[in-house]
């Protein structure tokens, strides 16, 4: 089977460097329509860079990123804007606009990005807030007045507000207590299922990965070194994956620790 023909997202030979530091060294990965792919890997391995390249926030030095079979690297600003209509993103820190109220944050992609009337966008935003378990009164608050878990939920509501075809989650549970992390995982599962969206998540939280992923891929030194169904993560046969999954300091993955 030609995987490119069915892949919603297809990445080939992706390379990206910052100054002299090479982060992605020719990465290949695919994500099928409606699939939930979770990319795991240690800090600084290039997970966020990969997602930012797919979103067009970073421009790779080499390689191809196809969405629905269409090349997206180097497209015009207008084409990129149209492409963004298909995508939603939940940032690690939430990235909520602190000068806007919660409902304005959720409705932002509709009012500013798609010219929906403010009142109509407000109703959609309140419905999306309800979908992530937040009441109408929360809509009138500012992001700084919310807890970390609530901010993540608002960010999730904003990511799904325009009902995108693809949703990207950057460390969705980082910094949350285990119960709130599970709430967020449940919401991600529910929202992705209801929208029928393709989801790409990056995390180093294995509990979260096991819960939301159909397929897991591990990124190490700029390459995907293993990928497979979620159920196979514990019998991958890959020493790098085993070390990461079991959280051992000893193994083939060496942490860069500078002597004091």
């Amino acid at each position: 089977m030609n995987r490119d023909a069915v892949a919603k997202i297809s990445v080939r030979g992706l390379k990206k460097s910052f100054d002299r530091k090479t982060v992605l060294t020719g990465l290949d990965i695919d994500c099928a329509v409606g699939e939930s792919l979770v990319i795991i890997g240690g800090s600084g391995t290039g997970k966020s860079v990969l997602v930012k390249c797919i979103l067009g926030l970073l421009r790779p030095e080499a390689g191809s990123i196809r969405i629905d079979g269409v090349e997206t690297v180097g497209v015009s600003a207008g084409a990129r804007e149209r492409l963004m209509h298909k995508m939603g993103m939940l940032f690690q820190g939430g990235a909520l606009f602190d000068s806007l109220k919660v409902w304005e944050n959720v409705a932002f992609g509709l009012t500013a990005g798609r010219s929906v009337e403010r009142e109509a966008a407000r109703e959609i935003a309140l419905a999306k807030l309800a979908a992530v378990g937040l009441g109408r009164e929360v809509g009138e608050l500012f992001p700084a007045e919310l807890s970390g878990g609530m901010q993540k939920r608002v960010a999730l509501a904003r990511a799904i507000a325009a009902e995108p075809e693809m949703i990207f989650f950057d460390e969705p549970t980082t910094g949350l207590d285990p119960i709130m992390a599970d709430v967020i995982n449940n919401l991600i599962q529910k929202c992705v299922r209801e929208l029928g969206a393709t989801a790409v998540s990056i995390t180093h939280d294995l509990v979260s990965a096991r819960k939301i992923a159909d397929r897991i891929a591990m990124l190490h030194k700029g390459l995907i070194i293993w990928e497979g169904p979620t159920a196979e993560i514990d019998r991958s046969g890959n020493p790098f994956v085993d070390q990461f999954v079991n959280g051992r300091a000893e193994g083939p993955i060496e942490m860069e620790i500078r002597a004091l």
């Binding site: 930012k52 979103l55 963004m84 209509h85 993103m89 606009f97 932002f108 992609g109 904003r158 325009a162």
Partner: peptide, 17 residues
């Protein structure tokens, strides 16, 4: 602050230049 907290990237992902 918007740059270092990803808010500018968030604008792009919300189809806003």
């Amino acid at each position: 602050t918007m740059r270092v907290t990803d808010q500018i990237d968030a604008l792009s992902t919300l189809s806003t230049d």
